[in-house]
Design a protein around this nucleic acid. Structure first.
Lengths: 213, 213
DNA sequence: TAATTTCTCCATCAAATGATGGAAGCATAG
DNA sequence: CTATGCTTCCATCATTTGATGGAGAAATTA
């Protein structure tokens, strides 16, 4: 059963969906305060009145964007959960990292929006923040690091955080990080995957670890 | 020999320095577009004309803030470099992580500004970005991971990135990350230090690693 | 075709924002 | 005390920005 938001965006050619797409892109690039309704309208190629006709307040549009990627990422986490189900811890981690990397690199806006809405304050409203904190526990569970959220130690949580935060930064920061490594995008993604695996797998399998890569 | 900026800020009670302090705090919280000159003036308790009298354009004030923490962090990196000089790789990493954690947690604005200026675009100007990329190599060298910037492999660079990005995120995100761990600030910093050491030390000493903590 | 609904744009508003000129305050030098 | 220069604030501008009303186009229905 699709949510009202999903229904509204079901046809990507619809004006409402086109506005949404531009909004997502620009909010992810400039943040809430840095994005004006006129910038969005211009990007779509319409008048701002049309934007307001379909979405109302700027804040509503922004919240819709947040809600949407919230659904998306939850869906992805569930998918990963079902893929890794029943495999060994080592395999679970490898697959989960591969899957999440591929997904996030194909949806960079998602990570940027999570980062911005978590780290930055908005002049306009105080309640625009999204709980990145929720993802920490969810990801830990999805990756099979714990059976439920309560059974994770602080140390383990901190390591999940370290990985999630690096992954998010690696994806959001690709434009200026990749040149530092001097590699193409495909290689960049591979290096990120290897780095995360190298860091995380021994962190959770605890014992000695076989050298990756 | 102090820079012109340092001289202007030498007396923290001077109006110019007070404005600077408020600006740094607010820019680090709301970003460039999210911070208005009126917000800064109100925070200082003065009229905006006084702000413009001392600093001129908003952009100039922002660039001064960026330049200042650039100096600060370079100084800190040099300090760390001299402290770890001559010690073993293991010790170097431990000390460097401890030092940088303590420093950054006492200067959260610095990390937030670096993150914002690196990741976000500004509506106003395109050239406000700060090269976080520079720090990656500098930190690697300061920590004694390489003798010069060119001798670092992509893999090693990626691991330094992972650590720097996590560290920056851990410091900037303390307000919403610490509650997830359910600990006090002092413990939070300790956990971050341990996590980074646990992750980075084996990553660079390569062979089997002794279990930290 | 005619009527009705849906959509898009132009014109416009009020508030916010970056920025400035000039008057008034205040200290210091003469 | 007076004159000078530095500092602060009030009043004000031009532009930008969020937001709306209404006219007309476009699609839908009858």
């Amino acid at each position: 059963m699709p949510t009202t938001l999903e229904k509204a965006l079901s046809n990507p050619d619809s004006m409402k969906a086109r506005i949404f797409a531009s909004a997502q892109k620009l909010f992810a690039e400039y943040g809430f305060d840095g994005t004006t309704t006129r910038m969005i309208a211009k990007d779509v190629g319409i008048d701002i009145s049309t934007l307001y006709y379909h979405w109302g307040e700027k804040k509503e549009l922004y919240l819709a964007v947040l809600e949407n990627f919230n659904n998306d990422i939850d869906l992805k986490l569930k998918e990963v959960e079902s893929i890794v189900h029943g495999t060994s811890l080592n395999t679970r981690l490898e697959i989960a990292i591969d899957e999440m990397c591929d997904y996030l690199f194909n949806n960079v806006d998602v990570t940027r929006l999570i980062l911005f809405s978590s780290f930055m304050r908005s002049r306009e409203t105080d309640d625009l923040g999204v709980a990145i904190s929720d993802y920490i526990s969810n990801i830990a569970v999805s990756m099979g690091l714990a059976m439920d959220k309560s059974s994770i130690t602080s140390t383990a949580k901190a390591r999940v955080m370290a990985m999630v935060l690096s992954l998010f930064s690696f994806t959001s920061g690709e434009p200026f990080l990749r040149p530092v490594l001097g590699v193409e995008k495909v290689q960049y993604i591979d290096i990120i995957k290897d780095t995360l695996k190298f860091i995380m797998i021994p962190a959770f399998t605890q014992g000695g670890h076989e050298k990756k890569q």
